[in-house]
């Protein structure tokens, strides 16, 4: 299929890109894995496409000792591809959960081109990153021609396919904490066979001390309109010894009070059940990796 005519710009600086989108009816293009098919089907017909791929500023992946998180932070430029995040030595050692999530996205072709900024801005309710970003309590750094702001991921993603992004605003980077030593992590997903998107996906981080679970974070994607932190599960597991029975009891609450999605691939009940199963798996593996 052939998209409708559109104007195309490929600025080389962030400033230029921001000035172009401030004019209105422009869509930015990152990896194009979501945008291009929509344009070909004419479900999206922007008058102006602003390609970000030549903006070096948006590609940086680096560590920052101070700032957003007490233990230091990793800054992932919006254009960092899933493959770059999955294979980066820095991400693998400082925030291994994120690398594990990235390695679970789609197939190798999609991971080579798709970007963390594009995935986050698109806010697909079945995307993988949001589960990890919720469990990491990540932040999203946004910028316009006029200024910058940083939002917690939970406030950035508003609902299915909707975010707090304003039309003249770009995702500049995603900020995640440098993981505390000894934290166990895991991302477990039930993939939809055709696309790889999550029917449900669960990311977990845990810490133990003197035989007790001291810290639990659980992020769930695919179940509801937006990814969320399963705080009931976290509270139930914290303070226990983390036995198989403790995990089962906590994981049983993973879908409680959630308005679950239904589609051709999975009914709401099945999704709820799978969320419990995959939460238990993620917690089990995360605990086995914690020390």
């Amino acid at each position: 299929m052939i998209p409708q005519n559109f104007e195309y710009s490929a600025p080389t600086s962030l400033k230029e890109a921001l000035a172009l989108i401030a004019k209105g009816d422009a869509k930015v293009l990152a990896g194009g894995m979501s945008l291009i098919p929509l344009m070909k089907l004419r479900l999206a017909a922007p008058e102006h496409v602003v390609d970000l791929s030549r903006i070096a500023d948006l590609k940086s992946v680096h560590e920052d000792g101070k700032g957003e998180f007490p233990g230091g932070a990793l800054h992932l430029g919006a254009l960092a591809t899933h493959f770059e995040i999955e294979s980066s030595a820095l991400v693998r050692s400082k925030c291994p959960l994120l690398a594990e999530v990235a390695s679970n996205i789609g197939d190798v072709q999609v991971r080579n081109v798709g970007t963390i900024g594009g995935s986050t801005a698109h806010a697909d309710p079945a995307a993988d990153y949001p589960a990890g970003l919720m469990a990491l309590e990540a932040k999203v750094h946004l910028t316009t021609a006029k200024g910058e702001r940083t939002l917690p991921i939970d406030q950035f993603i508003v609902d299915a396919l909707s975010t707090a992004l304003k039309p003249n605003e770009l995702v500049r980077e995603i900020i995640v904490p440098v993981e505390t030593r000894g934290t166990g992590f895991s991302y477990q997903k039930l993939a939809q066979p055709a696309s790889g998107f999550a029917v449900v996906g669960v990311a977990a981080r845990v810490r133990k001390s003197a035989g007790k679970v001291t810290f639990v974070r659980v992020g769930v994607t695919g179940l509801a309109g937006k990814a969320f932190r399963a705080t009931r599960v976290e509270k139930l597991l914290e303070g226990t010894s983390g036995s198989a029975a403790d995990i089962q009891k906590a994981a049983a609450q993973a879908a409680e009070g959630v308005d679950a999605n239904t589609d051709l691939h999975a009914s709401a009940d099945y999704r709820r059940q799978m969320t419990k199963v995959f939460t238990a798996r993620a917690l089990t593996q995360a605990l086995s990796r914690a020390d």
């Binding site: 098919p37 089907l41 479900l43 697909d124 309710p125 079945a126 609902d159 299915a160 396919l161 909707s162 939809q192 696309s195 998107f197 509801a224 309109g225 308005d259 999605n261 239904t262 589609d263 051709l264 691939h265």
Partner: peptide, 13 residues
């Protein structure tokens, strides 16, 4: 045709 997966969550949204 292409959005099956997203119809339910989008309608709810």
């Amino acid at each position: 045709g292409v959005g099956q997966r997203l119809l339910d969550s989008t309608a709810k949204m």
